[in-house]
Write a protein that binds this DNA or RNA. Structure first.
Lengths: 202, 202, 202, 202
DNA sequence: TATGAATGAGACTTCATTCAT
DNA sequence: GATGAATGAAGTCTCATTCAT
């Protein structure tokens, strides 16, 4: 297996990864054929097995590597936020913006990875937890600074935030009419999560 | 094809449906074999095809029928709530409670059906929209009564609510340690959505 | 198994036979389903097995019984012919006329029975030989009376006659435009076989 | 799909085709299993699908390709005949001779292809018509040259000739005792068709 | 006799993976 | 490293036949 870092930038391994995102996002993991990814990458079927152990490994590698970039990126972006609330806004904006910047990737994550824990033996989506941990960090900071409620259960809250973003992502992806523009929706989500649904505080 | 309505409750069609829920929820749709469902139902492989057109149809039927019951049930339950806020609480409580009452079903809905729009040709998960529509009704009522913010975007809000519940459901299902008990979590979700994350209103 | 001769005329066994002809002639033996024949007969699937041992037996019985009628009929018809030549003409006319009187039956015989010797174990199409024997009889009579050539090989000749009629039958059946009307064609066949292709005798 | 033209004569595609002829001719199309053809070809089941779309395609390809050779060959052979009558004799001799040279092929053509028009959707046996067209050409030539009757209906006549040859072929194939030797029979057929059955012209 | 739900063997076909070149 | 023809295990589905009613 060739080393991951190649001398050339437009490297074969990356072409396969990119093609896999495209194919998986279009047809789903189980309906995608390895030969299809090979064709889309411009390599032979067998070549894929020089870079990845098998089809499962292709999906996992894809997720791990791309998610690493996403996590590193969102850490940097939120770092520039003044306070927890602003950081949360950046996080949400960024997530929804990924829908446009990395449409295929998000689509794969949406449907494939979240069920992968069930189908792929012995796989824990570490990078997904890293992503959630960024959220936890923001929420903790907010609690510490008195911006968020002191009795906030961060474990639940981070899932509420992620779930909201994620569901709107799915809506966006599946909707053919594309009713919500992701960046506009991001604002709505942010307000709803920070202020709540109620007209006035109980 | 035998008639759908049988005099006995423990009818063959239902046995297949129940077995399918169990198998699909354990291994996922694509990893489930029809023969496995047959074995679990105590019928021959061919018998499944007397009641369902094919494997896809089994999944869709399962979803449509079980979701119909869930929708009818939640409509009735929320009807008893005094105001929109109480109805919302009931809705969320009920959703999280389904995790215990209908564990397998929820698991199937989680991972399979929601992606089905992509994989199953010409299938729109009508019953899922019915479920969301119940939420919309509650949110609209809340706006009308001044309980919820007047500028609430119901289309986004219902997805935020559903996404939050759904993500916590997944967390619950996938977690082997079962950190959050669903009913306790329901309270957290409700508070977070109604009041927001912030310590005080901006 | 009920006795073949039933008290009622419009008997169940006959309904099945008639339906089988219709179905086999439309889709061919291998593409026809027993349940389809049952439906077309207005009986239950299982009922067919009260009258016939299995699907093969249905085909064979159909052939034997209908062919018996055809043979008996053509014997009677040719008996009225004055000489061998006239009898031959009657035989050919009758064969082509069957295409209209018993379209489905002829179609089944065409494609199914003649290969049956290969597919159906231990089956000799006795009735088909009876039919050919009628032809032999005519040819022999013609030789005896000096109407046909003395050196005629009857074994070959009867096959030539039958093959010609049969091929034109197939043409008629398969042709959607129905170029040849069977009775007109019958005349052509008769002339060609009796006089030959040549303009004048060598 | 591997390229059709291989450098070696004993190419994989051809091995499959040859095996298919053997198996189809022995058991008939519907009773032949793909796995049987694979075994007879010495390839894996899946390999067949690298060269042919499906089982139907295998039959059709077999027919088209082999029949092309037969047509090309008979065109060349008849070309050497002096007149229409001699050409007709060559045509008939050749057809009967195929029974020995290409026994399996003829057997497949006999039973399978001629019914295929009914069972295989959207398939017209073009090559079969090409074969008949060679006959038409000979008959037309004979009419033009005054060798054959001027009032000969070529459309019917070519079917009479073909039907006669074909029926004798079947007789030969099915007969276990092999009463008629094909080449001897060919002479009988030729005489019968050219001169007719009658002792003297009516 | 008649029914038709149930059976289950077996067929076709797909496709992840391998390995000789 | 790269190829892609070949493999063959495995899955979905069909349908002739049975048998309890």
């Amino acid at each position: 297996m060739p080393k991951r870092v190649s001398s050339q930038g437009g490297d074969k391994r990356n072409r396969i990864l990119r093609a896999a995102i495209a194919v998986f996002s279009r047809k789903g993991f189980f309906n995608s054929k390895v030969s299809e990814i090979a064709r889309a990458s411009g390599v032979a079927d067998g070549t894929i097995y020089l870079y990845f152990k098998n089809k499962d490994d292709l999906l996992i590698s894809l997720f791990e590597e791309k998610m690493s970039e996403v996590v590193a990126d969102v850490i940097q972006r939120t770092a520039s936020g003044g306070g927890a609330l602003e950081k949360l806004k950046i996080f949400i904006d960024n997530h929804m913006d990924l829908l446009e910047r990395e449409a295929g990737l998000i689509e794969v994550l949406q449907v494939e990875i979240r069920q992968s824990s069930k189908f792929l033996k012995d796989y824990a989506p570490v990078k997904f937890f890293d992503y959630l941990d960024v959220l936890s960090g923001i929420l903790e900071e907010g609690k510490r600074d008195g911006v968020f409620r002191q009795d906030l259960n961060v474990g639940v809250a981070r899932r509420v935030v992620f779930g909201a973003m994620d569901e709107l992502s799915r809506t966006y992806i599946l909707s053919k009419k594309q009713k919500f523009h992701p960046s506009i929706t991001a604002g709505e989500i942010f307000r709803m999560l920070s202020e709540g649904l109620c007209a006035q505080r109980a």
